[in-house]
């Protein structure tokens, strides 16, 4: 029982980290901080613009795989079978 609760709380922690990164990358870099980021150039593009157009999508994809890897590690740690 205790194991289940710890598993669930760690699971929630991973989800909240994912949501925080999702918010920072999409709203933070793409909208709220777009002006200061636009002062930096990445491959000729303004960084704020790049995040709004492409960067956030790459970050979301990376997040999907990171989440999956973290959850697999968690499953193994708590011996939760698929």
């Amino acid at each position: 029982m205790e194991n289940k609760e710890t598993y669930w709380s760690e699971n929630l922690r991973i989800i909240f980290i994912c949501l925080a990164i999702w918010f920072v990358v999409s709203f933070g870099f793409g909208l709220l901080l777009v002006e200061p980021l636009n002062a930096i150039r990445l491959g000729g593009y303004k960084l704020g613009f790049w995040f709004a157009q492409q960067g956030s999508i790459y970050a979301f994809l990376a997040l999907v795989f990171w989440y999956s890897a973290k959850m697999n590690t968690l499953d193994k740690k708590y011996d939760v079978g698929s």
Binding site: S56, L63, V64, F65
Partner: peptide, 25 residues
């Protein structure tokens, strides 16, 4: 694996939410 499937199912929902939120902002 199942976690990857879940993540790929949730990602488009978050994408649409993000798009809607950005549009509203």
């Amino acid at each position: 694996n199942r976690h990857l499937k879940v993540a790929f199912m949730v990602a488009p929902i978050l994408l649409v939410l993000g798009w809607g939120g950005a549009d509203f902002y």
